[in-house]
């Protein structure tokens, strides 16, 4: 009996290791080669150096596109919060005709293939006379980020114990005071979490951006352009930086979620 169990456990462990390797090995390769002293990606490496990071820093186009991406991510996340949070509050607080339908279609930009959203937006913007540009990219990102913010904050609001808001009113707080002192602190993890998620999603968005950017390059599009002539070690370096930044954001949002559960 014990023997069989050990056999199964061993198989499972091997299988898990295989899956992990499948997911993380390519990432590991990128990270390792970013420190390569040679310009050819081949193993074993001839030495370790930071020269590709130096090259990355000196690549004006790359740095400019990184700045563009951060700017787009910041603005569209901000806009998504500005529109999504009040939207979630309204959805939670008020009943209106078609609420059920709204709850579903608000998720559409997330579910639809990015390519569809991109094409649709391009057509729409052309009608409106808006040229592919940075504002167009920001609006494009904002549409699907609103869906993220709205659904995440709404889900948190639904779990909020309504009685604590009543208790607050009972103790003399106005509606605004109740929102500020009671509601907001209790949904803060959802606010920060959805902002972080929005930021990361915007940062590596390609399909929608591709249709709307014109000459305005974001980081993923710049990287994609650079890889058309083969994977340069510079790309490994910038990818490693992006990977680390995402990792930090993910760790923070996971922490937040655990804190909320505690």
């Amino acid at each position: 009996m014990r023997q069989t169990w050990n056999g199964i456990t061993l198989c499972l462990a091997l299988f898990s290791a295989g899956v992990l390797a499948f997911i993380y090995l390519p990432l590991l390769v990128v990270v390792v080669y970013s420190f390569n002293a040679d310009s050819v990606n081949s193993f074993p490496m001839t030495g370790v150096s930071l020269k590709w990071y130096r090259a990355m820093m000196q690549n004006q186009q790359l740095i400019a596109s990184l700045k563009n991406s951060v700017m787009v991510a910041l603005i569209s996340t901000g806009l998504a919060m500005l529109l999504g949070v009040p939207g979630a509050l309204a959805l939670d607080r008020y009943d209106f005709a078609g609420k059920k339908i709204f709850e579903r279609i608000v998720l559409l930009p997330l579910i639809l293939p990015g390519i569809l959203t991109g094409v649709a937006m391009l057509g729409f913007f052309q009608e409106m006379g808006i040229k592919p540009s940075m504002p167009a990219v920001v609006i494009g990102h904002t549409t699907f980020l609103i869906a993220i913010v709205l659904t995440q904050v709404y889900a948190r609001l639904k779990r909020l114990d309504r009685a604590i808001e009543e208790a607050s009113a009972d103790l003399g707080a106005s509606r605004w005071q109740t929102f500020w002192h009671i509601t907001l602190p209790n949904i803060s993890t959802a606010l920060i979490g959805s902002a972080l998620l929005s930021f990361t999603l915007s940062l590596d968005e390609i399909p929608v951006t591709f249709f709307l950017n014109g000459v305005f390059n974001t980081l993923p599009i710049q990287i994609w352009g650079m890889t058309r002539n083969g994977l340069t070690p510079e790309v490994n370096a910038i990818s490693t930086v992006v990977f680390l930044a995402s990792l930090i954001l993910i760790v923070i949002s996971t922490r937040l979620r655990e804190e909320e559960k505690a």
Binding site: D161, A163, I164, E166, A167, S168, A169, D170, L171, G172, A173, S174, I182, P185, N186
Partner: peptide, 20 residues
């Protein structure tokens, strides 16, 4: 008068303490 303007206070069925 809304609840916050009434001179009564309530002890709620499940206490409704502010968790944060």
């Amino acid at each position: 008068l809304p609840p916050n303007k009434r001179d009564v206070n309530t002890v709620f069925q499940n206490y409704a303490l502010f968790p944060h």
